[in-house]
């Protein structure tokens, strides 16, 4: 990050890493990789590497955090000290606290919280390597971890961002584009219910550009959803294969 590139999109219309404006970074997902957690998932979204582990539902401790009428989702987003070029202090920062809250709120609509009063679910999200768009990648992985823990859910949640670089709307910004670019719009989305659960924006966009960015982000979500679906099924596929043999 020493020298800033002047142009984010070159003459051929390609971005710094050779992507087209409406192209996603490669996404890889794996489910159930932490045997000690009730449910877990790992995502590689471009250069982002994020682990998510879920515990519960279990008795909520400390007791004063219990809610008599619903389940509580407790979420911790944390960046490892080695996740960014300059060492990050491992203590939770203001940004991490905020992201924890944002991720929790994005995931809550997918859960039947009213069915399990007085219980709690713990969700731990560990960013091992960050390169822009970690909140979106975290939500995608965390939703899988919750499903893997056996929690009833309305739908899986996928998240993806779109933004504006060099006066052009582009999908899935990476770190450099996010920092130099003009705007970033992360969207979390339930594909089967066609519902948005997270919508943020920083930077400046005209209403027209904003609409275009949301549309693009949702298209991106749908693409990631296919990968997410496949990842969840893969873990339970062994059983399906046995069936075919019968």
């Amino acid at each position: 990050m020493n020298e800033k590139p002047k142009k984010l999109i070159n003459k051929k219309g390609l971005r710094l890493d050779g992507r087209k404006p409406d192209e996603l970074r490669p996404v890889k997902l794996k489910v159930g990789i932490l045997p000690n957690a009730d449910g877990s998932a790992y995502i590689e979204h471009g250069k982002n590497k994020i682990l998510a582990g879920a515990f519960g539902p279990r008795e909520m401790h400390p007791k004063h955090l219990q809610r008599a009428d619903r389940m509580v989702l407790r979420c911790r987003y944390h960046m490892a000290p080695f996740s960014v070029p300059e060492r990050k202090s491992p203590a939770p920062s203001r940004r991490e606290n905020e992201l924890s809250k944002v991720i929790r709120d994005a995931l809550l609509p997918s859960l039947f919280v009213e069915n399990y009063p007085r219980t709690g679910v713990d969700l731990y999200i560990e960013v091992l390597q960050a390169d822009g768009g970690t909140r979106c990648a975290s939500i995608t992985a965390a939703s899988l971890a919750l499903a893997d823990a056996g929690l009833p859910m309305r739908d899986l949640i996928v998240a993806c961002a779109a933004g504006k670089v060099d006066n052009k709307i582009a999908l899935d910004l990476m770190d450099t584009e996010d920092k130099i670019g003009a705007a970033d719009v992360p969207v979390a989305y339930m594909p089967n219910l066609n519902a948005v659960t997270l919508l943020q924006m920083d930077g400046k966009l005209s209403p027209k550009e904003f609409d275009e960015a949301i549309k693009m982000a949702i298209e991106g979500c749908k693409k990631i959803y296919d990968i997410q679906k496949e990842a969840l099924k893969t873990k339970y596929k062994i059983i399906e294969q046995e069936e075919v043999e019968e």
Partner: peptide, 25 residues
């Protein structure tokens, strides 16, 4: 019958009842 489904999959439309591990909307 016995197909592997994941949360959010649309299972049926119309006059069906939601049994175990499903919901109606």
């Amino acid at each position: 019958k016995k197909q592997l489904v994941i949360p959010g999959d649309l299972l049926a439309e119309g006059e069906y009842f939601a049994g175990d591990n499903t919901y109606k909307e």
